[in-house]
Design a protein around this nucleic acid. Sequence first.
DNA 1: TTTACTGATGACAGGGTGTCATATTTAGGT
DNA 2: ACCTAAATATGACACCCTGTCATCAGTAAA
Lengths: 214, 214
Amino acid sequence: MLVFLYIVNGGSTLPKQTFFNLPEEKKQILIQSAEKEFSRVPLFEASISNIIKAAGIPRGSFYQYFEGKEDIYFYLLDKMAGQRKGKFIAFLQKHDGDLIEAMFAMFECMLHEQEHISFMKNAFLNMTHKVEYSFLGIFSDEESISDFKEVSAQINKNSLSISGDQELYHIMQILTAVTFRNFVAKFARGLSDEQAMKSYRIEMNLLKKGIYKG
Amino acid sequence: MLVFLYIVNGGSTLPKQTFFNLPEEKKQILIQSAEKEFSRVPLFEASISNIIKAAGIPRGSFYQYFEGKEDIYFYLLDKMAGQRKGKFIAFLQKHDGDLIEAMFAMFECMLHEQEHISFMKNAFLNMTHKVEYSFLGIFSDEESISDFKEVSAQINKNSLSISGDQELYHIMQILTAVTFRNFVAKFARGLSDEQAMKSYRIEMNLLKKGIYKG
DNA sequence: TTTACTGATGACAGGGTGTCATATTTAGGT
DNA sequence: ACCTAAATATGACACCCTGTCATCAGTAAA
């Protein structure tokens, strides 16, 4: 689970073992070809034909490695999100466990991210429930999630108005939902980094102090 | 714009005039056939072939009325959301302008909604940025939105900790985002109405009082 | 070398898509 | 009533993509 940067695939789609058995080079070519296609168009418009054309592998091979395009898509998504998990924990540590400060840092960090920008844009604008799982980590089981605990351990709970892990869980849900929506808005409306940050700041402050008086 | 019930299509996809010129009966058949298909599978999996088969019209005719399946999909979505707008305003009035109470009422009301349940489920689980526009009304132009004002007028702002319409706008964004996410969670995890309501209550209370202490 | 298993390949049938030339209907004008 | 032009209706068609499967190749153990 975890904030808008970690991942958990829900266990649904995974490449077959044959893919992992592939020589590193061939694997990389496939990954790059897939990212190219998913950067061009969102998942639902992506075509396997384009991926194999770019990778130079026969059609049958693709199905040897994956059940369908979702497998490699979520593999990529998980891979990228996994790379970000450490960052968030680092931000938490840097800000003495202040959840919202860490969120700000992460949000800004992602605003500046350029490497997978097209891929991300397509992901954000065509966010499906399953894709969100990868990004936000929404769990059916609130407890016993090692990832949640790993992050939870870094959070300074003294400044939060919570009574237990249950509420912390919901706070994370709220924060990720709002953070997420702000990200989508940036892409959808083509906001500048400054505009996006400003809007995000306003909403995070509202979350902090609450929307009702007193 | 408007809360998780109203609509604004972003002006992007619309049926052609020829569709509106159709005799009422034929229009209804088409609408029903489309809803049937979109209840079966999400938008991206829906096939025009199935719709025309069910409606008993030739393929060419479909393209006479719409540019593609998106046109009729968003037409349906807008139609349903429009039907809900009045409800929300009524709830606001019933609760003396209390925004969150009205939200509770609306959330509960939607939980019990049965009529378009499959259609909705597919919409919620495959929520795209464009679909969200229809549901949440996220605008690029914060001002001059007559719909926003229409609802805004019914809101009791005394109990809200805001300084102007700008903040009210962001509050609405936050509330709709969280409400929305709770709805998706209900469908995704198959929560009972009670469980969904409980989770929603916790999060709305957190929003009310704020997530930071004093 | 034989056997058995794992992986690679590309031809193929099935199905969906958007278009377009042609046919039909509608609305005016005379 | 008749004729013409514009609007609408129709379905065959070419195109593209998909998932499968029979066949071929590689490899390692017996």
